[in-house]
Simulated assay, not measured.
Amino acid sequence: MSEPALAPRNALVGVVVVWATAFVATVAVGIFVAEEWRVPWMLVVFGGIVLLSFAVQLWYGHTQGFIFRVASSVTGALLLMGLISIGFGIAALLPS
């Protein structure tokens, strides 16, 4: 017979970790990568975020809600990366 977990990990922490990583990586790409290479590097970062999301949710160790947690991590990261990319795109259009 299996014993129930006394203090299960909070699933929301994993989602927030993925979002924070997406934020930091997107800002780093926007600052350190030349304009013509930003889109390819954003795709690389998003691929890494998807893999990180799977890894974090597998580490969580519960099957219930796995798809929902991964989907919310990836969707939130995609929206966050899109908003930051829009900001960098508008900044690139402004004359310096």
Rank of each mutant, 00 (worst) to 15 (best):
F32M: 09
V45S: 09
F66H: 02
I86K: 03
V27A: 14
F66G: 00
W19Y: 06
V16M: 14
A77N: 04
L51Y: 11
G30Y: 00
A25W: 11
F68K: 09
G48E: 11
V15Y: 02
A55W: 10
F68V: 10
Y60C: 01
L94T: 14
R9C: 07
E36I: 04
W41Y: 13
G61M: 06
L43V: 13
L93Y: 12
L94P: 00
T26K: 07
G76M: 02
I49W: 04
G47Q: 02
M81W: 00
L43Q: 09
Q57G: 00
L79K: 02
A91N: 08
V27C: 08
L52Q: 13
Y60S: 03
Q64F: 03
R69D: 05
A77Y: 08
V56W: 01
S73L: 07
G65I: 00
A71R: 03
G30E: 06
V27E: 13
A55I: 07
M42H: 10
A77G: 10
E36A: 12
P8R: 01
V39T: 10
G82R: 02
R69A: 06
R38N: 05
A34F: 04
A55T: 10
R38M: 08
L6G: 06
W41D: 06
V24G: 13
L43A: 15
A77M: 04
G65S: 01
I67G: 00
V33W: 02
V29H: 10
G61T: 03
V15C: 08
A20L: 14
V13K: 13
L6W: 05
A71H: 01
A20C: 14
N10S: 06
I84V: 15
F68M: 10
R69I: 01
L52F: 09
V27I: 15
W37S: 11
A7H: 10
T21V: 15
A77V: 07
V15F: 01
V16G: 04
I31A: 11
V74D: 03
V70D: 05
L6V: 11
L51W: 13
V16W: 09
G87E: 07
I86A: 15
S53G: 15
V50T: 05
A20R: 03
I67D: 09
L83N: 09
